[in-house]
């Protein structure tokens, strides 16, 4: 279980996360909603141990262990994976290399290259392509596939639907549902309320670095109006 308590992060003097608290339970999909510049990505980066922003107060704990102050490779070693905003694939690496750089192609435990390719047949057809030769949807698939190779128990996904065609967004929602079935917990950053409600169990709304609302997704599906005032979306 992930527990973020009263987290404060700064870019220089800019106070971007202002005392955010939230939890992600086992096998739970939690959506973090908010408009641009509200601190969503800063919060995710703080959880992953990426600096900047710099965490100055509060804590992030995973299964009771404090992550704050660890390097991000130590955090990843605790089975927390990142699907970053903008995908951030490696332009010099082929599709296969994105996976084998983390785990040998011969590995048989957990998520293997074969198992990941089964989940994303499109990537199997593109094995030898480089990251920058893929379509937007394929890039997102690869970013998720790469994250799976560390056998995560929690995936932090930062706006995975950004820039995707509606049909790809739907496909992605299907993938998230399958990962949840496979036992993963997911903290999903979204701007798109409806996409978030399609997959999330619970929803938090972040505004200027603070969590301002928390709700069960099921309660919102029929009545999203209560969130729209926070998000300014339609």
């Amino acid at each position: 279980m992930l527990e973020i308590r009263d987290l404060h992060s700064f870019y220089g003097e800019a106070h971007v996360v202002q005392g955010a608290s939230l939890t992600v339970r086992d096998r739970e999909v939690v959506a973090l909603l908010g408009r641009n510049g509200m601190g969503k990505t800063s919060l995710i980066r703080s959880v992953m141990g990426l600096s900047a922003p710099q965490v100055r107060r509060g804590s992030v704990a995973w299964k009771g262990e404090v992550l704050t102050g660890m390097t991000s490779h130590e955090i990843a070693g605790r089975k927390i994976a990142l699907v970053p905003q903008g995908r951030r694939l490696f332009p010099s690496l082929t599709v296969t290399e994105h996976l084998t750089m983390i785990k040998s192609v011969r590995a048989r435990d957990g998520w293997t290259v074969d198992r990941v390719m089964e989940l994303f047949p499109r990537l199997a057809e593109r094995r030898q392509h480089r990251g920058n030769q893929l379509s937007g949807g394929e890039r997102q698939m690869l970013a998720v596939a790469r994250a799976l190779m560390i056998d995560p128990e929690l995936i932090l996904m930062d706006e995975p639907s950004e820039g995707l065609a509606p049909v790809m967004v739907q496909h992605l929602e299907g993938i998230i549902a399958r990962l949840k079935e496979a036992g993963l917990a997911i903290l999903l950053v979204e701007q798109n309320l409806y996409s978030a409600l399609a997959v999330a169990d619970r929803v938090y709304v972040i505004e200027t670095g603070k969590i301002v609302h928390e709700a069960d997704a099921s309660a919102l599906v029929d009545n999203p109006q209560s969130l729209i005032r926070f998000l300014g979306v339609h």
Binding site: S72, H73, A76, G77, R88, F90, L93, M101, I102, I150
Partner: peptide, 11 residues
Amino acid sequence: DDPEMVEAMGI
């Protein structure tokens, strides 16, 4: 390409 992302992959 991107050292920070390599680090975030547990390396």
